[in-house]
């Protein structure tokens, strides 16, 4: 089967067809009077709410709060994961020393940390950053270790022939060699961070997209809930697109 090409009109038609069909069905349900305002908003209502939120600045505030939380938490996770990942890869003794605890902490989902995070840090931003950190640190860490592990052994043998110092080995071989895998880890990590921030904000927050969801529910305003969900989806996609582009820019050799 030949894949539709982006330069074709057909590609874009196909690309937007399904969302359009869903909108049409949604609208026709509304016109048939099947939608109840407290379970499912009409398209018009959703549109009005969006405009209202955009005008009074709530849209930007909520998104801004969540995105900046994700960036802070993710950055902390990235630095931690890279450092520990490199140590584990380079020092087998450190690997053994930390292995069991990492294996046990890894399966605990970020949501399971929320109660403890609230007890420790309260319901402020710190607890959210902590949850995001937990969500993002493992994918980056695991992919860093995996990336170093899968570097061709011959690269190291050859480096040995040149008698290159360890610092040059890390700079010229280990980091670029593991980079494709690290970039995958970063993408997964950011995805996880985004999921975690929504979860954390739904439980205790006064701002953010997660707050929009829980607030919409308590007000019986499905339009706010759906707007919040759409924001989560759209911004998640945008972040992933940015990272995909970044990967292309950084890794020019594959």
């Amino acid at each position: 089967m030949n894949k539709p090409q982006k330069k074709d009109v057909f590609y874009w038609f196909l690309y937007f067809a399904l969302p359009l069909i869903i909108l049409i069905i949604w609208e026709s349900f509304d016109r048939a009077g099947k939608l109840k305002p407290y379970t499912m908003p009409s398209l018009e209502k959703l549109f009005d709410t969006t405009v209202e939120y955009a005008k009074n600045g709530q849209l930007l505030t909520n998104i801004g709060v969540s995105v900046s939380l994700v960036l802070e938490g993710f950055f902390l996770a990235l630095v931690t994961a890279l450092i520990i990942g490199m140590l584990v890869s380079l020092f087998p003794k450190f690997d053994t020393f930390t292995d069991l605890i990492i294996q046990i902490l890894k399966p605990i989902p970020p949501i399971a940390w929320i109660p403890l995070a609230i007890l420790w840090f309260g319901i402020g931003q710190e607890s959210k950053i902590f949850i995001i950190f937990i969500g993002a640190v493992f994918p980056v860490f695991l992919n860093t270790v995996d990336g170093v592990k899968t570097i061709d052994k011959k690269y190291f043998e050859l480096a040995k022939v040149y008698e290159i110092p360890k610092s040059e080995l890390i700079k010229n071989i280990i980091i670029p060699g593991a980079l494709p895998s690290i970039m995958t880890g970063i993408r997964l990590g950011v995805g996880n961070a985004w999921v975690s921030v929504v979860a954390a904000e739904m439980i205790g927050a006064t701002k953010g997209v997660g707050y929009m969801l829980s607030n919409g529910r308590s007000l019986s305003r499905p339009d706010i809930v759906i707007l919040g969900m759409l924001l989560v989806g759209v911004f998640g996609k945008i972040m992933d697109d940015i990272l995909r582009l970044l990967r292309k820019k950084v890794i020019t050799w594959l």
Partner: peptide
């Protein structure tokens, strides 16, 4: 480096 090695699948640094 006094002995240069050429392997079957040369490990060239792709980056």
């Amino acid at each position: 480096w006094h002995r240069g090695v050429v392997f079957q699948n040369p490990p060239l640094y792709e980056w």
